[in-house]
Design a binder for these strands. Structure first.
Lengths: 224, 224
DNA sequence: GACTCATTCAAGAGAATACTTGAATGATCC
DNA sequence: GGATCATTCAAGTATTCTCTTGAATGAGTC
């Protein structure tokens, strides 16, 4: 650790934290952990890496205050250390959104082409749900849904969307949400449903941001 | 650039931006540029690095949307691209504040020992100034003061503090501010003034955050 | 048009990072 | 107490990053 004066020491530690966020796999781990706690093996599968490599990434994240770990029986479960980790990732992403042309291009080509409509804000969704004006669907896999979801939301994992189309109301507007900003699931869900004639919008960001705002959360069971 | 699916591509670009913030010198450049635009040579001197190396850091920051450059005559002036760069740095720092023990330790040892009092919030300072209840001093070097400061603030660079003690009112409370969070200048100023019997507090963060909030700003001249 | 000067580029040495492999740890289960 | 299993550690290699040095660029100046 390079040290000069106190100010530079703080900058060096801050930089370490930033570097710790500076890897696609680690960002993916953070997004995954934001849905709920998970074991190392399950995380390794999620990011498509070896267990050893995943463990090393997790230890780095833990070293710099991004995640926490806890032993439950044979397994070690990791979880997000603090909601401000999500804020930091969102803040960094917001720089990419305006300053990195390639980022904007991917958004345009792969996300907005699926659903270019404006997302429903969380506060607006809250109001709409109170009036029973919309059907809210959670398109994440059931494990993540069970670990926590918006109360009143219906779990319709993307994989099952086609089979469950008939169960969804055609006239009431549908609002889909998933893991967070630029999670492709809700974009795909919106595209598929709209193609079938449903009225559908996405919620901005995803469940972790809903929870981080202190809104009500429903939990069914512990998964993984 | 590693590519798999669109989601991972966005994560990879976001990670690049985070890595771009992940170096003490670059964070120092950002903090410096937050005070106002500067030439490469002046920035190199500020961070104590060669011009070539500084230029490379600046180009990286520019590549990832953190700073912008503009030619003025012979020199190239860099400036902060967007206030959300400061937000991102602050968000990352907030992780370090709670999650990195070494960070907290430096804060305790080198900052809180100088001035452990709570900082004055920007909104409170605004109120106090309206009532003419405090003397506000800007302890940054005059070049940075001239590039922009809080209207009504008195520029008392740290280097000149001792000589100018007599000009400061003893009974009215003094509020000192400087470059930003954990800029050591305002802590040192508070410590020195308090040792001389002045009533003094620091303003939270610094001038860039005041400006980023859309508050009034005074500008005298262009420096460097 | 040649000169000057600030900045950028290019190449290279040394350090740090990421991923792999295989072994070590340490808690549970029988 | 020994076996089992998830996780972590340790060592090795390929890649990337940082900083240095010296040359190239290119806009202003005489």
């Amino acid at each position: 650790m390079p040290k000069r004066n106190p100010k530079q020491e703080l900058l060096a530690w801050t930089a370490e934290v930033a570097r710790c966020l500076g890897h696609a796999h680690r960002l993916e781990l953070i997004e995954c952990l934001a849905q709920g706690s998970r074991s190392v093996e399950s995380l390794a599968e999620f990011i498509g890496q070896s267990v050893a490599n995943t463990s090393q990434h997790l230890q780095l994240l833990r070293r710099f205050g991004c995640v926490a770990s806890e032993r439950r029986g044979k397994q070690v479960f990791y979880q997000l250390a603090d909601a401000r980790v999500l804020h930091a990732v969102a803040a960094v992403r917001s720089i990419a959104e305006i300053g990195v042309a390639e980022f904007r291009q991917v958004v345009r080509k792969d996300f907005l082409s699926l659903d270019g409509t404006d997302a429903v804000s969380r506060s607006e969704l809250s109001r709409l749900m109170k009036d029973n004006a919309v059907t809210v669907i959670d398109v994440r896999p059931s494990g993540e849904f069970n670990a926590g979801h918006i109360p009143g939301a219906l779990n319709v994992p993307m994989a099952e969307l086609k089979q469950r189309l008939s169960k969804l109301p055609k006239r009431k507007e549908i609002v889909a949400y998933c893991r967070g900003a630029y999670c492709i699931l809700s974009f795909e869900a919106a595209a598929q449903l709209r193609a079938q004639g449903y009225r559908v919008r996405r919620m901005e960001d995803g469940f972790p941001e809903w929870k981080a705002e202190g809104r009500k959360v429903a939990e069914s069971a512990i998964a993984h």
